[in-house]
């Protein structure tokens, strides 16, 4: 198991240079069974990261560029009348895949956004009263441009909660930058890499995450963290967020090769899990504030 995980990280880091932490976090999000929101400027390697992860994990990958004229049917699929069979045939949209890259999600209209987010939550789509299950595992990597560009629809707070994690990639360091410029790594090489895992393997890993032990002492710490956000900040973490935090910490511990969660795991994943749920009042340092204030029990 551990070998698989290490192989995944190794392979991905070959393409996404100098971003091991972000790669680990995205994998954590995936293992915890949640969806990932990557927020960064264009050209920072968001798409490459998503693409590479899918490829390394041996999963089906689709990419949809979100635009303001994108309709819900464009993602989910449409019932089309089939002349030959004289019946309506469901034409599956791009959402029927393992890894869906929703590029620039904030460009789509709220209607389209909510159709996608609903599917993310339910792991199924309903068209004309027929329910179609999405493949397992199902993983959405949405990217969004943080700058307030004209003609975007910012995701509403309630929808942000559906993303387990939000990460930013940031500029590469000098060494990686040089390697990139030398044409090592990057999207061009993404298609060349080999899958080290498959869908079944990933599902097994996801189950493994649930086996990671969470002690009472750690639950105390988690509760203290959640409680702190509820008492000391404007909007507290939802129970769903709390649950997500626990799952991410478990996944992080698994990636680190442990069968129990420590506060270090929680601290490693907390900024990615809570920042987008709490930083409504422009306080970007909220995660640091929480971690500094809450004592470890």
């Amino acid at each position: 198991m551990q070998k698989t995980i290490q192989a995944i990280i190794h392979a991905t880091s070959h393409i996404i240079l100098g971003k091991e932490q972000q790669v680990k976090l995205s994998l954590t999000c995936l293992l915890a069974g949640g969806h990932l929101l990557i927020e960064d400027l264009p050209g920072m390697g968001k798409t490459t990261l998503a693409h590479t992860l899918a490829q390394v994990l041996g999963l089906g990958f689709r990419r949809t560029q979100f635009t303001s004229d994108l309709l819900p049917a464009d993602i989910i699929g449409v019932s089309v009348f089939d002349r030959n069979t004289s019946s309506f045939q469901f034409h599956a949209g791009p959402i029927f895949t393992n890894v869906l890259l929703a590029d620039e999600i904030n460009r789509a209209t709220p209607k389209t956004q909510s159709a996608l987010l609903e599917a993310m939550e339910e792991h199924q789509v309903t068209v004309d009263g027929n329910t179609h299950l999405l493949p397992q595992p199902f993983f959405v990597i949405a990217t969004q441009n943080p700058k307030h560009h004209i003609g975007t629809f910012a995701l509403p707070e309630s929808q942000l909660d559906r993303f387990l994690m939000r990460i930013t990639l940031g500029y590469p360091d000098a060494q990686s930058e040089r390697a990139l410029l030398k044409n090592q790594g990057g999207r061009a090489n993404a298609s060349s890499i080999q899958a080290v895992c498959d869908a079944d393997g990933l599902l097994k890993l996801q189950q493994q995450v649930h086996q990671v032990h969470v002690s009472d002492a750690l639950l105390d710490y988690l509760q203290a963290l959640i409680q702190y956000t509820r008492t000391q900040t404007n909007e507290g973490l939802s129970p769903r967020a709390g649950l997500g935090l626990r799952q991410c910490a478990q996944a992080w511990a698994l990636i680190d090769g442990r069968d129990f969660v420590t506060p270090e795991d929680v601290q490693a994943v907390l900024p990615s899990v809570v920042a987008h749920r709490l930083a409504q009042d422009g306080n970007s340092n909220i995660a640091k504030q929480i971690l500094d204030q809450v004592a470890i029990t």
Binding site: T262, E264, Q267, L291, D292, V294, A295
Partner: peptide, 9 residues
């Protein structure tokens, strides 16, 4: 140890 500092840190 600081308030929010983990054992390992």
């Amino acid at each position: 140890p600081n308030n929010g500092e983990t054992v390992l840190h």
